[in-house]
Nucleic acid binder design. Structure first.
Lengths: 344, 344
DNA sequence: TTGTATGCGTTATCAC
DNA sequence: GTGATAACGCATACAA
């Protein structure tokens, strides 16, 4: 060991941890230790340390599916980076929804002496947290439990409102909404936001303008058709996700409607492969996956008894080229209330 | 401890590990131990065990970027599932390309006593493996080092050949190729495959039919224009990725060419959001990310001294609707050599 | 058939 | 100012 090399003893512990007691050491011995450390390129064995201190400085992320949704990575990145900054290592365990695997994952997490657990999901929904975790700090990331555990969620209502406001501020008054599947957290909240925005702008809520899609391109297309083929079609439409907005693009093009001249469109999710690359590039609302990941770690590590048990992170619109002022009967209005541009 | 509870001693160790020596125990004592285990819901402390046995049964995955490329997740999933099956837990460490972070990640990995390391990247390229890892088994996943470490790679040459063969088997003889950026592993290998396929089919290699794109939609569009505006335009075109193939779709539509009636298209990557949802759905080549992940774990854990140091996993085409027999001068040929359908 | 003792690499409590 | 030494929770060689 380094002890033999440096000809000293567990003084090593003081200096490698720069313990307050290390201050009481001769500069000489400290140097001697550091030298030895470098010579043997010694690294403290964190397993042993964990055994002794009962803190492993590692946290587990329990997720059901590791799907192909691209933003899973943003979440993970947020969690890892913040954890890293705070001296923690994170291990992601995907259970694939299989109950057996899930059971195994839980055993594993417990046996491995993680200090804390983050439970997370691809899309916001309720999740049952196994009782075995009651001994550990847990925070829910993008999901929630029925027993009010600490959780971080996207501010979907605000996001829905922001999406509608992009259109309202561009001058639109007849605004359609193609929503996602009905009993989804996202769909419910986004609709509330849409309603709020209209209300604040003094625009009456017309329920025939809000349609229920399926979060897929084809459903977006179908609902778009229903909206666009009305004699009094809306001048702007927001969709509850980018995939449906792509369906809306198809339907619009098919009818010879130009975006944004004849129809303004706002998507949701800021799915770069879609909204970012659409022609014209689509204004969309960004879910704060990265920030949510960081917030979850902070919440986990700072868990004060009286801290708020819910942290909502705002969803901000990213402005591209799919929104313009409405053209009242053929010609543009020349209205300059376009929303301000923004980095993508 | 469980020992006190069961009124026995380190016999516990035998039964929880079902050691051969556990066979020599009375059924009674074994029952007693198991009972106690259940009562206290005891779990062996894996950190302590690792300390004792010098094997933590955990492997680290070192990756540079956790980008938004959707298939990162497939790779991770392959690694995790196979590792899990073999009793290992995997921790992914993303360094984000930052050298400082990278250095820290290496220290971390070493200090945490991982048994082995997988180094991986988003797209196939050479990577420098830090000397610190020389003490650990390492396998390269989707990347390679200059010192011939064990590695698993996608069979890109075979993939390129397969893509070209889809067109050849449909009856095409003039086949364009929009390749990706030139000095990329993927671009080089795929072109070789393209060349092989033509050669075997006895089709002369026409260098003016192979164009260098940039792996992006716009580049695909540009090169497609160059190919489609020739008087002797090819009847089928393969692209080195799906994004460029989308650009090709645009260019074709713009010229009133129908896919697949007037032009057959084959993509690459099987990027579901693109090839899977294009209209018409695009035939593409699937990279075996999931299988590669599993193979990497196997290679790591079975490392025999004389084992092959390279494992290539085949890239298979997934057939959709973008390929048909060429129409010779206006009308279809009626040729029935269409490739067989396949699950997506 | 079962119990005892020792060490894995740390940290922490005391002596010196 | 610094060095012994006892845990932490386990595995294992050896004694009983």
């Amino acid at each position: 060991m380094a002890r033999l090399a440096g000809v000293s003893i567990a003084t090593v512990s003081f200096v490698v941890n720069d313990d307050p007691k290390a201050k009481t050491l001769t500069q000489a011995t400290r140097d001697r230790v550091n030298e030895a450390v470098r010579m043997l390129d010694y690294r403290p064995n964190l397993a042993a340390r964990g055994l002794r201190t009962q803190r492993t400085h590692s946290i587990a992320v329990l997720t059901d599916y590791l799907t192909s949704v691209p933003w899973t990575n943003s979440t993970t990145r947020g969690v890892q980076e913040r954890a890293w900054d705070r001296g923690y290592l994170v291990t992601t365990i995907a259970t694939g929804g299989d109950p057996t695997l899930r059971k195994g994952a839980i055993e594993m997490a417990l046996a491995r002496q993680f200090d804390a657990v983050i439970v997370t999901t691809d899309f916001t929904h309720e999740v049952e947290v196994p009782a075995e975790f009651d001994s550990l700090p847990v925070v829910m990331l993008n999901c929630f439990s029925d027993d009010d555990r600490p959780r971080v969620l996207p501010g979907e209502q605000g996001g829905g409102k922001a999406a509608a406001n992009v259109l309202i501020e561009a001058g639109h008054r007849r605004i359609g909404f193609i929503n996602g599947v009905r009993d989804t957290y996202a769909a419910k909240e986004r609709r509330l936001g849409y309603r709020d925005a209209l209300q604040e702008a003094g625009i009456p809520y017309d329920r025939t303008l809000v349609r229920t899609g399926n979060f897929q391109t084809d459903g977006g297309y179908e609902q778009a058709v229903a909206l666009l083929d009305r004699p009094d079609r809306p001048s702007g439409i927001m969709c509850a996700n980018d995939r449906m907005a792509v369906g809306l693009y198809y339907a619009a093009f098919q009818r010879g409607l130009r975006i944004p001249e004849d129809l303004s469109v706002v998507g949701y999710d800021n799915h770069l492969e879609l909204s970012g690359r659409a022609v014209p590039a689509m204004t969309s609302v960004q879910l704060p996956h990265y920030e949510m990941g960081m917030a979850a770690v902070d919440m986990l590590l700072d868990q004060a008894p009286d801290a708020p048990r819910l942290r909502e992170i705002a969803c901000e619109p990213v402005i591209r080229e799919s929104v313009a002022p409405p053209c009242t009967a053929g010609a543009g209005t020349g209205d300059l209330t376009t929303a301000t541009p923004r980095a993508n």
